[in-house]
Amino acid sequence: MILAKDTKLKYLNRRIDEIEQLKNYCLLIPENINNLELFASIEMIGHKLKGNGSTFGYPELTQLGLAIEGAAKKLDLEKLRELNLKFEERVRNYLRLLNDI
């Protein structure tokens, strides 16, 4: 399914917001005693990304979502930081490509 450019831009910009959220959660987790809730929030972000990435034409994001969801379940903060960097890199790259058109 070919989507409108605006639809894709909107989608990717919302991911940028999520990336910022993820960064924030990753910072908060070591200092927070109730960090399980934070991991659960990250898991939910990963779950949604897994569910919508391919639908918007980004199967790589679906794969990243799956990995983020899995790492959050395992409470693996290091992995989450690493995945979030990849996530950011991919999204910014997609945005650049879209804006070049």
């Binding site: 399914m1 070919i2 989507l3 409108a4 450019k5 894709k8 058109i101």
Partner: peptide, 9 residues
């Protein structure tokens, strides 16, 4: 990119 969903498909 189409302004709407792909009408052809």
């Amino acid at each position: 990119y189409l302004s709407n969903f792909d009408e052809v498909k």
